[in-house]
Design a protein around this nucleic acid. Sequence first.
DNA 1: GGACTGATTTGCATCGTTGTAGAATCAGCG
DNA 2: CGCTGATTCTACAACGATGCAAATCAGTCC
Lengths: 337, 337
Amino acid sequence: MAATLRDVAKLAGVSFKTVSNVINDYPHVRPATREKVERAIAELGYKPNLNARSLRSGRTDTVALAVPELNLSYFAELAGMVIAAAEESGLTVVVEQTGGDRDRELALLRSPRLSMTDGLILSPLGMGQEDADALNVPFPLVLLGERTFDWPCDHVTMRNVEAARAATEYLLASGRRRIAVIGEYEGEVMGSARLRLRGYREALAAHDVPYDASLVVRATLWHRADGARAMHELLDRDVPFDAVFGFNDTMALGAMRVLQEAGRRVPEDVAVIGFDDLDEAAYSIPSLTTVDPGREWLARTALETLLARIAEVGPKEPPRTELADYTIVERESAPRN
Amino acid sequence: MAATLRDVAKLAGVSFKTVSNVINDYPHVRPATREKVERAIAELGYKPNLNARSLRSGRTDTVALAVPELNLSYFAELAGMVIAAAEESGLTVVVEQTGGDRDRELALLRSPRLSMTDGLILSPLGMGQEDADALNVPFPLVLLGERTFDWPCDHVTMRNVEAARAATEYLLASGRRRIAVIGEYEGEVMGSARLRLRGYREALAAHDVPYDASLVVRATLWHRADGARAMHELLDRDVPFDAVFGFNDTMALGAMRVLQEAGRRVPEDVAVIGFDDLDEAAYSIPSLTTVDPGREWLARTALETLLARIAEVGPKEPPRTELADYTIVERESAPRN
DNA sequence: GGACTGATTTGCATCGTTGTAGAATCAGCG
DNA sequence: CGCTGATTCTACAACGATGCAAATCAGTCC
């Protein structure tokens, strides 16, 4: 069995409460006592039982992070950033995968597993505005990555509409007029797909380019294979297009692959722009022009916001919305002109 | 405050222990009582405090998973698989990143954070045989992904040597003779780099192809950029080569990118083979021939082995070694002939 | 020397749960 | 109607830590 406070106390010849005081840096401990206790701790290899500490103190120093799946590089990289930031604050992170499924997201919000954590950072995909009530939870909760409205919790998100509009305008500025879109998803109400589509349409409207629904291809999970499938579908439709806006990099890369197989040159025949600025976007052939939605900032800010909420005492502040700045990263798949 | 057993008990008009009995499916509870209690539970939205339960029972139903970083797709996908498998067993997973750093790996093994978990699955990169003692820990521990020898804990691993040998022989069989290698790393003693290099050399030896150190390029972290950098270095050396074996897919993809920039055609001038069978290997241009080391099996088996160890009572079984089967996935970057 | 003061140390209750053991209840039976 | 043995429920003591308040200690001052 692992050593406890009492074992250490016995060895050091003090009360177990004194050992606790030493561990918690209680100021009034005589140096000699402290040293004696520390020696005993070292000798027994004592480590505090964090479960017991949590039970007593109410703090677990653990947060939960729920993403659709780690299979998606965007979420994997995001999770990595959140975990790294948490580590800096001495926090542990439990990672949950929801599959982007509404029911699993809702189930997670009600799960007793969260009683092991101080709060949750949730990247919702399946939930819609009608689920706002479910977000009224008795623990700190931060939504990460979705722009929403009257939701009763903090959210840290990106400028989906503006960034998508900027991406589209970037393509328009380089002379493209038939811009296909991959990743539309009518199932969701206010998620990224809808918002990015809105940005796309705003850009078209601002430049008097007609919106053509036959250029819009649906994709739900935003995997690489979904991008490939969507591009096949687009090619099958046999409508002309000179650019593609993938709602994430992963799909854009899958689509680019299919485009090239079909003999279209990128960017000469078709310019391709993605969204996310994944690591690998810089290394594809051609490298992928994309939107950096400010991921690092998102990860850090989500954690900071959650920690602030956890530390909060007294009456609760109203929910906050934090918006990251985006930038367009120009690479080969869509040169500026 | 969240409801406790006592609150439920008061509402239901029974002792709090009876509520506990209901929750734990203790058989001798009258149906009427059970129903009364269940109604009270529902009314109060009672959820058990898992910390208290863990303190009392000694089980946390949480396991820790430590990987170098989620930034590396291989580990992200592996982590996703482990988490999904754990979810099926009702377990929560804490994810830690070690950066592949020996000190951080060792620190983790000594961390009190693990007292919140029932056991650890560790993907070590930095540790060497000299750290075997550190693996003698008082909790269930499974090493994932490294082939090691007399280490005092279970390990679930891949056939690094055989698979690397098979990959090399695949290239040899297709007529290549000057096969470069990316990812050698002399710093590690018995990790994947060394083992894959051994497989490579065995294959060369078996086919009377001389080993040429100038074809071997070092890379430590196995990121995409490391692969790109290694390929630049190789090109700078100005030695002839007709194939490249990347010790992981990520580097192979980074290297392939640089190769193509440099005007070498893949596979005509240079065949490329990777290792891991990442999702994206199927979608690069050209698609990447690679070795599937049996990842899904590795993830599931690592978890199963850990769970078996956790469930173990009485004297401990000797450490087990589980070996996954590999397969070579033929794609465009290195056709069979 | 004894009261007073502030610095150290300690004891006890408590967090919310489960295990053990025993008490209360009940049906069946002589 | 009391006895018996099974069923059902309850009381109490942990698990290992922390917070509070009280106890002890070492000096200081009169």
